[in-house]
Design a binder for these strands. Structure first.
Length: 253
DNA sequence: TTCCAGTTGA
DNA sequence: TCAACGGGAA
């Protein structure tokens, strides 16, 4: 390809109006997403672990195999041989790590809460989060997914899709970490479980369909009207003040 | 064959 | 900060 230098979008201050507009636009475009797609709270947690760095399609296969094996109960996860868990969840990838994480959660849940979701989620949100993060294999996204989708706490889940979309739109810096990104959303979107649930799900759909890592489909994206003007983009030696860099990249395909 | 997506441990 | 962890889809 010719010389082409894409500049990060002009950073814009995120406002409550901006976030509300993004949320409303995506909801209008995609409709309610009805997350989390699971039958029980334990199944939400199992799914949250299995979907780490993995597409949901593969997780569904693994969850179905666990269900068929009668392993969608924390006691069953506790008692089953590790190798049995591994073979069930193989389609979800990272199966050795994740089998251990499933075990780790099951012990945590039994030992500290007697297998009671009521007791686990009766804790204050911050305390519950800290306890979940103490489980080996639980990072911030997994913990927050459990808090939001199983515990119904008003906490926003940040993932790769969220960061990609928000940074391409200049609402967070390209290198914004998990906490920074989450704090921005918490600051500008009302702390309601239903809103955080839906917004995260809508961002995932947007990330998969339009805001892809390579060759983003900006021209048909519902958020296209809100893309910031990019910095100067150098294309084939000429300096042009173009629309947002992502659009420029798309047109350059 | 490359690409994608979280967490750990060094 | 970065390799390792694994599979399925593009």
């Amino acid at each position: 390809m010719e010389t082409m230098r894409a500049i990060a979008p002009e950073p814009r201050p995120a406002t409550s109006e901006t976030l509300a507009t993004y949320y409303g636009t995506l909801l209008q475009h995609f409709g309610p997403q009805h997350w989390w797609p699971a039958r029980t709270r334990l199944e939400v947690i199992v799914g949250a672990i299995l979907t780490q760095n993995t597409s949901w399609r593969n997780v569904e296969v693994a969850v179905a195999r666990l269900r068929r094996a009668g392993l969608l109960q924390h006691r069953a996860l506790l008692n089953a041989p590790l190798s049995r868990l591994e073979s069930c969840i193989r389609p979800a990838g990272y199966y050795r790590q994740k089998a251990r994480t499933l075990k780790a959660f099951a012990s945590f849940f039994e030992d500290q809460f007697g297998g009671s979701f009521h007791r686990l989620f009766h804790l204050p949100m911050g305390e519950c989060r800290a306890r979940l993060l103490s489980i080996k294999g639980f990072g911030p996204e997994t913990a927050d997914s459990v808090l939001l989708y199983a515990g119904k706490f008003p906490i926003f889940v940040v993932d790769a899709y969220t960061r990609r979309i928000l940074s391409r739109h200049g609402l967070v810096p390209p290198d914004a970490d998990y906490a920074t990104t989450q704090a921005m959303v918490h600051q500008h979107l009302k702390p309601e479980t239903k809103v955080y649930n839906e917004f995260h799900a809508l961002l995932v759909e947007t990330g998969k369909t339009y805001c892809r890592p390579q060759q983003p489909r900006c021209s048909s994206c519902p958020l296209r009207p809100f893309l910031p003007v990019a910095g100067p983009v150098l294309v084939a030696g000429s300096l042009a003040n173009s629309p947002a860099w992502a659009l420029a990249a798309e047109e350059a395909e």
